[in-house]
Amino acid sequence: MRLLDIRNLTVRFATRNGAFTAVDGVDLTVDGDEVLAIVGESGSGKSVAMLAIMGLLPWTATITADRMDFCGQDLRKLSAKARRSVIGRDMAMIFQEPMSSLNPCFTVGFQIAESLKAHLGLSRSARKARCIDLLEKVGIPDPARRLGMFPHQLSGGMSQRVMIAMAISCNPKLLIADEPTTALDVTIQAQILDLLLDLRKETGMGLVLITHDMGVVAETASRVVVQYAGRQVETNTTAELFAGRHHPYTDALMAALPERATQRRLPAIPGVVPGQFDRPAGCTFSPRCAFVFDDCHTIVPRKASPALGQALCHTPLIGGVPSARTLEPAREPA
Rank of each mutant, 00 (worst) to 15 (best):
F110H: 10
A129N: 12
E136R: 11
Q232D: 09
F242Y: 12
V35P: 02
D198Q: 15
L174F: 08
C283T: 13
L56Y: 01
I87S: 08
A255T: 03
I164F: 10
M1Q: 06
P301M: 12
M166C: 11
R67Y: 04
I299T: 07
A334M: 14
P316K: 12
A22I: 05
A281R: 12
R325L: 11
F20Y: 07
G88Y: 02
P151I: 05
P151N: 00
T220A: 08
F293S: 11
P267V: 10
A229T: 13
A61Y: 06
A261C: 14
A268F: 06
T187L: 06
T29R: 13
R16Y: 07
L78S: 09
G206S: 09
Q96A: 03
P287D: 10
S123N: 08
V300K: 13
S155Y: 04
A261K: 13
F20V: 13
F293T: 08
F110L: 05
P306T: 09
M68F: 00
N171P: 00
L3Y: 06
D278M: 08
R265L: 09
C131H: 06
L9R: 01
I53F: 03
A37K: 02
Q191C: 04
W59H: 14
Q191T: 08
L56K: 03
S222G: 15
V186E: 02
G55K: 05
R130Y: 08
A144D: 11
M163T: 07
P329D: 08
Q310P: 00
A49F: 14
G271T: 05
R331V: 15
G271R: 07
V108Q: 04
